[in-house]
Amino acid sequence: MTTALAELDAVEVDYPRGPALGPFSLTVAAGEIVALVGPSGCGKSTAMRLLAGLEAPTRGAVHRASARGETAVVFQAPTLMPWASARANVALPLELAGMHGRTARAHADAALARVKLARVEAAKPAQLSGGMAMRVSLARAMVTDPKLLLLDEPFAALDEITRRALGEDVHGLWAASRAAIVFVTHNVEEACYMAGRVVVMTPGPGRLAGETVVEGPLPRPLGFRTTAVFREACEHVSANLARGMQGAAA
């Protein structure tokens, strides 16, 4: 294993309505893609906020090697500022870091080009399709050259064709940047396709239910979904999920 970029060390999070997560541990190595899979309410999003440093654990410790601006988050919704153009949305993280407006916008245009949105820089979010808005959100996350990219069910609201296209885009961005990616999803097949490692969580408060290493190259070659490696990984993840559910019921 290479250097750990971020680590959740036996973290637990309690909300006023009860325990939400843990104890749960997760180590993210530099440059790897990890998928977090689990039923609704198992604390996946909470784990993401801990990794992002947006929340502190009630118990346990969070270790983050990356500094501010080196962690980026993409939420389930594109979360764009509706009054601002795609370019201004993407330039935001740079401008907040103090970069001069014109330079920031030039970087933003380059980031938009990397997600194949070179021609819509001036469009506002309402003028974009759901998939395009999500790609703007991805461009905004990548514009600071983060070492850790957190994707919190980023494609959940999109249709199957768009999600697959966006999945390829994420792999493309990963291949170019080698940022570590933590990817939350409900979808077992999406997890096995996107990630080199799939971590399954139990129903809330989420704990580790099992872990699957998905062999094979990243980005995935054409036809990966029909390979035995892919099918076995999916079955292994599904078995972990089922065991996690049984454990919760018992």
């Binding site: 906020r49 947006l54 979360t79 009054w83 993280p93 401008e95 907040l96 870091a97």
Partner: peptide, 28 residues
């Protein structure tokens, strides 16, 4: 949008940036 607020947290936005870039435009 609370997620936009989180994004501003993540990037360490200063209070004035948050006011002029997020809260005032949201209030329009």
């Amino acid at each position: 949008d609370p997620d936009l607020e989180r994004l501003f947290d993540l990037y360490g936005a200063r209070p004035l940036d948050r006011l002029f870039r997020l809260r005032l435009p949201s209030a329009v």
